[in-house]
Design a binder for these strands. Structure first.
Lengths: 130, 130
DNA sequence: ACAAGTACTCATTTTTTTATTAGTGATGAT
DNA sequence: ATCATCACTAATAAAAAAATGAGTACTTGT
């Protein structure tokens, strides 16, 4: 995947929003596709790359590797490398990661009431759609 | 903006995730650019299109209209049309919308600790980045 | 010598999202 | 008669995100 244009309105708006409130940065992070599921896998003890891959059956290597890296960069998970061959690397939540999971669980409860109440699929909500 | 391909892996994966957990649908909704800010504007009493536009200075008409429509579809805000000319339409939160705002506030508090601790900008976290 | 297993990376294509620009309709003020 | 106002829509272009397919290193087993 390619570089971001740092001279675009798209980029500038994002920076503007992230500066306005860090919530925007957090949402930008957790809303990436598969992100919460990866987090929940790790929370539930599925700690290896291959295990997560198996659990989230349609996720690609590329995306999983990316999501793990981001979570690691944000200090939400840590990596334990056993230095074996074939590689054995395990992930677990940091306390920050656990805290986030709890908050997401609350949001999840809300969404179960709210989303199903109105029976709309977000994929039907795009600009220009009727 | 154009139609979604309903026969793509991209689309299918999203459906898969939304079926797995409605949280994914909610996150997909609230993480759209400007969405939380629009919600917070309304929460704080900035109830008209033009007012929100002024407050979020770089948002475009297109996006604002889209975000309001989505929020309305999900029953998070309601519209009060005064049938005046020039038009006067006011938005306010539903109880669902208020509940969501409260949850987002909690997330916001978390993000203020977590995000700044690691000093990383989400815009620097993309697949393939070093 | 070759295949299998694991946790990845890299380059490219496809799809989606966001931004840009130009409109619309009704009316009151100039 | 034209202009300004407000809350939008529609078409298109630009940018970003996600998916695809291939390749890597390192060992143990055959």
């Amino acid at each position: 995947m390619n570089e971001r244009k740092i001279s675009s309105s798209n980029y500038n708006n994002q920076i503007y929003l992230e500066n306005r409130c860090t919530l925007n940065e957090l949402l930008n992070l957790v809303s990436k596709r598969w992100m919460t599921e990866v987090l929940f896998c790790i929370e539930e003890g599925t700690s290896r790359f291959s295990g997560i891959k198996e659990d989230l059956k349609y996720i690609s290597d590329t995306i999983l590797a990316d999501r793990l890296k981001i979570l690691r960069n944000y200090g939400l998970i840590i990596q334990n490398d056993f230095h074996e061959v074939p590689p054995r690397i395990e992930y677990s939540l940091t306390s920050s990661g656990e805290e986030l999971c709890n908050l997401l669980d609350q949001l999840c409860q809300f969404s179960e009431n709210c989303m199903q109440m109105c029976g709309i699929n977000s994929t039907q909500n795009k600009v220009g759609a009727e």
